[in-house]
Design a protein around this nucleic acid. Structure first.
Lengths: 190, 190
DNA sequence: GGGTCTATATATAAGAT
DNA sequence: TATCTTATATATAGACC
């Protein structure tokens, strides 16, 4: 189960074999754990690794495995084992519960985090956008004002009616825009 | 791994549990076989089924397993404890991993959510903010207009007919949006 | 119950970092 | 080398017989 189909034979490459061993051992232990939890069954696995051939990896636990082993040799002490299994199952179930609780908690936290992060990011972004946009607006206003000023100045020297001023400016656009329009415009700005 | 995600807990339904047990035991044995083949490692699994609690299923073979188990037993408890995977530690480790994975997942989700929420909230908020800002702008414009008005007034004292000024401009529109009365007044004044 | 058949969930081989 | 990521191969839950 991987990028390629692996031939079922001894893996010659050392590092590859090590890696595969590690991964598969972990998967195996998980499987045993699951079998134990799902079916309430006693089980153990003993694996002699390539590193230290004298000390095997064992699951579920040394004593547990030892017990299973003993039982394998002399079929007895059924009741005690059953109790132990129940204990284990109980422990695992508790873990599951804790895990679920954690999930819930984190989900709640996440909402909070989202809000906070959003507020911050939002403010930053708005700050920048407004700064730029208002800068432009201010500039435009100044421009318009200057032109108006010029007109006023020229008025001093003549009695003729001044022509219409200032049409289709950015300010006009910004101010005239409907909310929906502005939002669309903002979207492009962002 | 099936049609639905199975919760990691004791399967209450009897037939379902039996079925699952059977399938999983088979899979487990296969896994051990593969580990043995691929990594040239000695390993065995012992599973006490729910049917005959006295006779466990064993792999590779009872005798083979017996050898492995005997070897296991010969080790001192101290040595075993060192390398063995104790159940609690294993579960804790898994918890941590699950937690981390969860975090990762949530981080990814959050980014997505943030993006989506931000796009919407950002636009809304900016819309509102910009609206406020424009209100301020209008005020500033108004101020400037007042100053201009003063000049125009003084100009009117020295000329016959005050010329029309600033008609249909963006600035006017801006002011208009804020206060229609002011516009009328301004028009009249000018 | 015990086999057979998919749609999905998982495990994991290679590759990327 | 260890770890993380991704594309695939496997395992298996639920449905059906």
């Amino acid at each position: 189960m991987g990028r390629k189909k692996l031939k079922l034979q001894w893996i010659a490459n050392d590092s590859t074999r090590r890696s595969t061993f590690k991964k598969r051992k972990q998967g195996l232990m998980k499987k045993i754990s699951e079998l134990n939890t799902l079916c309430g069954v006693e089980a153990c696995a003993i694996v002699y690794g390539p590193y230290n051939p004298q000390v095997p990896d064992v699951w579920p636990s040394p004593s547990n495995a030892h017990r299973v082993l003993t039982r394998f040799k002399s079929l007895s002490e059924m009741e005690q084992s059953k109790k132990m299994v129940n204990q284990e199952a109980y422990l695992k179930q508790r873990m599951v519960k804790v895990r679920e609780q954690l999930k819930k908690q984190q989900r709640a936290n996440r909402e909070e985090e989202i809000t906070q992060l959003m507020n911050r990011a939002l403010i930053d972004k708005i700050g920048r956008i407004l700064k730029d946009e208002l800068k432009d607006l201010a500039w435009m206003i100044d421009e318009k004002m200057n032109r108006i000023q010029e007109r006023i100045d020229s008025l001093r020297n003549t009695t003729e009616s001044p022509p219409q001023l200032i049409n289709g400016t950015g300010i006009q656009m910004a101010v005239e825009m409907e909310d929906a329009q502005r939002q669309t415009w903002l979207m492009n700005q962002i």
